[in-house]
Amino acid sequence: MDKLADKWAGRIYGTNTGNVFLEITQKDASIEGRLRIMDSVFGVSLYSCVGTVADIIEMTCEPEQDIEGVVQGTVTVQGRLDEEGRLHGSWESAIGTGGTFEMYPHNIEKVDKTKNPEQIHNKTVPIGSVRLFKSDLLQLVNYISKDFTAGRVIVTYHFRGVELTKYADDFFSQLDDIEHLQYIKLVIQEPEAYGINRVVVIELGVHGFSEIRVSGINESWVLGKAESIFQFLKPKQNALVTTYRKHGLNINSILFAVLLISLPEISDWKSRGIFVICAFTLLGILMHIHAKYIPNTSIYLTESKPSFVKRIWPSLLSWFIAASSSLAAAYVFYLLKGG
């Protein structure tokens, strides 16, 4: 027989949706308690519950008070504990409503600590150059919220020289003055089991590296969640800029290598030295321009459906810089060759 925690939090799904909070006391195989439901449509309701604990946990819950304009009925609940200590199952009411639920122990300090996890698993996935618009960011927040029953996404961003932190709902409701962000971090976490939180962090910055970080005690969940988020963001990456930042010298390296191979065509060593210096100077300028004028991450919050030009301009600029530097090197080669 399982010894249940006395506080549980989670969500219900089905004909009714919302947050739930259950407080119970247990004596042997019998339990009783109080259930609070914050229905997304009908608001708060209270139920008194009695039940039994065995392979299947069963409860019968009766409404404690009448709610004007709302029909309530007796609710029967059946659920099981999984290996991670979460309680999930189904519910059904006497008035015909029903659905599923998932709850986790909220008083983590009282969870059985004799069962310790073998280890905490962490996965970090680097992200390339990303362009996100308002609709993209909304989809990303909703996507990483999957698998979390009570955790809320927290947004940290830089705006007017100040670092601000808000819940995602508040962030999206207060976008009037925000048009463009160069840094944002999304964090969501909730207790998993053994007093340990599972966490998802997505950090995107204009300079340096952006990455996904996922932690938890379930290795398959950690690896799967990290990979699924990466695949979600992959279509929003700029392949050319990502490749340039990852490898430093992409197509331009090849072009300069071809030019250097042509060095024997330059007659004297002095001219060859000048050409090599010019080539690598151009390459350094090219890398500096990429770092300064082609940001690794840009987030635009003024429109949900971006124009084609806004989507493609980093690639066009990168190709233009590459072509210009290659032409400049070719022209220097032409002059030094005596053309």
Rank of each mutant, 00 (worst) to 15 (best):
K7M: 09
E163I: 14
G79Y: 04
I285W: 12
Q231A: 08
S304M: 05
Y104D: 00
F101D: 00
P105D: 02
R36K: 15
C61L: 04
I294G: 02
H207A: 14
T297W: 00
T76A: 06
K3G: 05
E92V: 14
P314A: 04
I127N: 04
E118V: 14
C49H: 04
Y300R: 09
K225R: 14
R160Y: 11
F320M: 12
K236I: 01
Y104T: 06
T156V: 05
D176L: 10
A322T: 12
I254M: 14
S298R: 13
W313L: 03
P126V: 09
G51Q: 02
G89F: 10
A29Y: 03
F133C: 01
A279S: 15
K225L: 07
F275C: 02
T242K: 07
R198M: 03
S210T: 02
E211D: 12
R245I: 04
W221D: 11
P295D: 07
G69M: 04
E190R: 09
R11Q: 10
S90D: 12
R245K: 13
D39K: 06
L249G: 07
L22S: 01
Y183C: 01
F230D: 06
G43P: 08
I31F: 03
L260T: 07
H180L: 05
T114K: 14
G161S: 06
R160V: 08
F148R: 01
V200L: 11
L260Y: 04
L335T: 13
R131K: 08
H288L: 15
D176G: 10
Y183K: 12
L317T: 11
F171P: 05
I24M: 10
S220E: 11
S93W: 10
K3R: 15
S267P: 00
N16V: 04
K310A: 02
T165F: 04
T243W: 03
V162D: 13
L46I: 06
S215K: 15
V199I: 15
A94I: 02
I274L: 14
I144Y: 02
L255N: 10
P306W: 03
D112Q: 10
T302Q: 05
T17F: 06
K185T: 13
I108R: 07
N250F: 13
A239N: 10
L282S: 10
T97C: 02
Y167K: 09
M1R: 12
R36P: 00
T281M: 12
V44W: 07
T124W: 04
K270Q: 11
S30R: 11
S45E: 10
Y143F: 15
W8R: 09
Y167C: 00
I188A: 05
G79D: 02
W313I: 07
I217L: 13
T60E: 15
T60V: 15
D147E: 14
S220H: 06
Y183Q: 14
S215L: 06
V130W: 00
V199N: 08
S93K: 09
F256K: 07
H180E: 11
L327W: 01
I285E: 07
E62S: 13
V75P: 03
S326A: 15
G128E: 01
V309F: 12
A329W: 00
S90K: 13
Y331S: 09
N197W: 08
S298A: 14
I217H: 03
K236R: 15
M59I: 07
P191D: 08
